[in-house]
Amino acid sequence: MSGVAKQRASKPATLEDLLAIPEADRRHEIIDGELLEKGAATGEHGGAQADLVTALNHRFGRRPGGRWPGGWWFATEVEISFAPAQVYRPDVVGWRRERAPQRPTGVPITLLPDWICEILSTNRRNDLVKKKRTHHQCQVPHYWIVDPAEETLAVHRWGPDGYIEILAAQRGEIVRAEPFDAIAFHVGVLFGDDEPEE
């Protein structure tokens, strides 16, 4: 735990506490009122994150129309305010352009995303429990979990009683994963496989 997190352990952390950390050193989140430093990403984590962004942005990170579906904005590791005591840095997020005509900006971004993907690493419990709970409360429509250790992808859709897992896939499978189900997706691309030539 960083010194900043220790000094705030007795009272809920605020956005001001988060922004007081120099930007170059800020890999922190406010989770349930606690200022926490994100663990360093493994090579597997970083590779999966880069490959996911490359695959999605190529096809969806553009205006609708043309050869690819388009219609989305994507960002990685940006601070998003979910509530006063919840400011997260999701691994990858996306907003539908029909809801966000301009790329979301600011620190933190206050427009909630339409899709979030967390890539499991040292922060597994937060991604699988605390953040998932907050994303559901904020009605984020889709939440993906990529697990580099197990080489799996889990796709969750928002429902009134909780997230519903609508797809579980592993390396070697080709899937159509909401909300990007307009195209087939090779799960192995997340884990170092080459994408087939188009």
Rank of each mutant, 00 (worst) to 15 (best):
K130D: 11
R62F: 07
P108W: 10
I30E: 00
V175P: 04
W73E: 08
E79R: 04
V53G: 13
A55K: 05
E98N: 15
G188W: 00
R59Y: 06
T54W: 13
E16Q: 06
R89H: 09
S81M: 08
G159H: 02
Q49H: 09
T105S: 08
L36Q: 13
R124Q: 04
I164P: 02
H58F: 05
G70H: 06
E150K: 08
T152Q: 06
R125P: 07
L19V: 05
P22V: 03
C138A: 15
G39H: 07
R59L: 07
D161C: 11
T134G: 09
V78A: 03
D161R: 12
R125W: 09
I31F: 01
D17F: 05
D127V: 03
E165A: 05
K6M: 08
T110E: 11
P12T: 13
T122A: 03
E197L: 14
A48I: 11
M1G: 12
P160S: 07
Q7I: 12
E29R: 00
K130R: 09
V107Y: 14
Q7F: 03
A41P: 04
R63G: 11
V4I: 13
E178W: 07
D51L: 15
E34G: 08
R124D: 09
H135F: 06
M1P: 10
G162W: 09
R89Y: 04
Q102I: 06
A55R: 04
G33S: 10
V146R: 00
F180Y: 03
W158V: 04
L36R: 11
G94I: 00
T42D: 14
I30T: 02
E150N: 13
S81L: 11
P108E: 05
F185R: 01
V140Q: 00
R97V: 05
C138V: 13
F185P: 01
E79V: 15
R26V: 04
K11W: 15
L120E: 01
V78K: 01
E198T: 10
K38M: 06
N126F: 08
E98L: 07
G172P: 04
L15T: 05
A182E: 14
T122R: 12
E23M: 03
P69H: 12
P64H: 08
R26L: 03
E195K: 11
E44P: 12
T105Q: 13
D193C: 11
P108S: 15
V189S: 03
P69Y: 06
G33C: 09
G106Q: 15
H135S: 01
V92K: 00
L52D: 01
R99G: 10
I21Q: 03
A41N: 14
A154E: 03
I183L: 10
F185S: 02
P69V: 13
A20W: 12
Y163V: 06
Q137D: 09
